[in-house]
Computed example of a mutant assay.
Amino acid sequence: MRHGTFDEDDGRPTLRFEVDVAADAERLWAAVSDPAELAAWFPQALSYRPRVGGRIDFADDPLLPPTSGEVLAWDPPRRFAFTWGDDEELWFEVTDGGPSGARLGLTDRLALRDEAARNAAGWEICLDALAAHLDGDGHDGLHAEGARDRWRAHFAAYTATGMPAGAPVPGDDE
């Protein structure tokens, strides 16, 4: 587990992950900004206009409806941020100098506190897929057999730490 942290940022519930990867910053930037590379690890296919204020569209997740958002930050090769759906914001920050290459800072500014454990568990699965992609290893996909069980294990670990939970889980009977 990558030990995502939960906090309030200006009164808004926020998850943060810092992940060291075995790739240089240029390679990591491609993985977090190129739609073809994002398809290997991000929960939805996306297309966007690479500029602040540009539209970003999300599709092709069997558990989530298509949605759109707006690019909030576009500063290659270091920072990319956008809204995802109505109220969620994702921030990717790439820096040099992790122990084995580069470091990814992932910040998920949530719409609701109760989404924290659910989303943190989901990011664990996504970040595993990102690491496999950067290593050149195959990954079975975010919705492959066994992924749901891994998600549930991460979710249980996060709720055990007291991270807020209670939001509906896409794909579960609600």
Rank of each mutant, 00 (worst) to 15 (best):
L38C: 09
A165V: 05
R49P: 06
A116K: 02
E115A: 00
V94F: 01
E89I: 05
D149K: 14
V71Y: 08
A31N: 05
L104D: 05
V21E: 06
L72S: 06
G122Q: 04
T95H: 07
T14L: 14
V32G: 06
R78E: 10
A157N: 11
P62L: 06
H154E: 01
L28Q: 06
L106T: 01
Y48H: 09
D10W: 00
R79N: 10
P65V: 06
D96C: 00
G166A: 13
V52I: 15
H139A: 12
F82G: 06
D7E: 15
D75S: 15
G53R: 00
A81I: 13
P62Q: 07
L28A: 06
D60Q: 13
E124W: 02
P43C: 08
G4K: 02
T161I: 00
G105Y: 00
A81L: 13
P50H: 12
E145S: 13
T5K: 10
L90D: 03
V32A: 09
W84D: 03
S33T: 09
P50I: 09
A131R: 04
D173L: 13
V94M: 01
L38D: 05
P35Y: 10
D75W: 09
D128V: 12
E26R: 14
E124N: 10
S47G: 14
W91N: 11
E145H: 12
A165W: 10
D7C: 15
A31E: 02
G171A: 14
L112P: 03
V19S: 12
L90N: 05
H143P: 05
A157L: 12
A102V: 03
A40R: 11
P170V: 07
A40P: 03
T95I: 07
R55M: 02
P170A: 08
D149I: 11
F80R: 05
A25I: 12
I125W: 01
M163K: 12
P170R: 04
D108W: 02
A129H: 08
G122K: 03
W151I: 11
A121Y: 02
Y158M: 13
I56T: 12
G4L: 05
L112M: 04
F6G: 00
R103H: 03
A121V: 04
A59L: 07
T107L: 07
L15V: 07
R55P: 01
A45K: 10
R113N: 03
P77T: 09
E26D: 15
F42P: 06
F155P: 06
E115N: 04
P66Q: 06
D135L: 11
R148D: 14
L112K: 03
P164D: 00
F92H: 02
H133F: 10
D9T: 10
G97S: 08
G69C: 08
W29K: 11
P168M: 14
L46E: 09
A132N: 03
F92D: 00
L64P: 04
Y48M: 08
V32R: 01
D114H: 05
R118M: 06
